[in-house]
Amino acid sequence: MTLIAAKDVSVRFGGATVLDNVSMTVHPGEILTIVGPNGSGKSTLLRALLGILPTSSGTVTQKPGLRIGYVPQKLHIDGSLPMTVRRFLSLPTRHSASDASAALARTGMAGTEAKQMTDLSGGQFQRVLLARALLTKPEILVLDEPTQGLDQPGEAGFYRLIEEVRHDLGCAILMVSHDLHVVMAASDRVICLNGHVCCEGAPHVVSNAPEYRALFGLGTRGALALYQHVHDHDHSHDHGHGHDHAHPHHLAEDHAHDA
């Protein structure tokens, strides 16, 4: 049974068509990543799937009673609003102190209940957002560019955490990203979006698809290889190595091997 399905979804703002006949499904337990350049409608699709945004045509169906944990793209908390981590976790639904501290521990933020949200660093903030999403015991976690503003080790760490969460909770994960090189290795399936679905499939299939290449060029291959090395905890002097891969096939094999 699919968790969320979009069928021929189009979204238009004024005269502009942001999404054009997009069809996709999210299956239980999978990590599905939507990649695409800026302005390709990734966030719009996510908001349509969540029911935040009405579609101009087409339908979005969610499994009845689907529990969704949502981590928004960015959340600005105004300095005039005092908010402890503990209080934030209970918005809008109350959760017990033990559940809250377990969720914080799960995301590496144990013992931060009394901290003010505005005192957290970008990475800590994202982890608290994730902890809040986990408290709903989600069947699917939805993350909109969750690592925006994090440095590269922070990014890699966050995606590792996501993989752990999926492993522990068995929930599906739906992510949006424009920094595909980091996300690729952590995904089961990738949808490449540019107003419409350009291509989709396993990460190595998408990274070799001509549509994907046309959108992202060839320069990202190096970045992908770079990430793979970081991910494998290889030595840093291997980084340059990635740029030497002339053949995309080579990379795809690398990746398949890795997975």
Binding site: I52, Y70, P92
Partner: peptide, 19 residues
């Protein structure tokens, strides 16, 4: 109260929570 606070923090977050 809770709904107002959530919507004040982020309208997206509120909507995703069914508010």
């Amino acid at each position: 109260w809770s709904a107002l606070l959530t919507a004040t923090l982020s309208e997206d977050l509120a909507q995703a929570s069914g508010l």
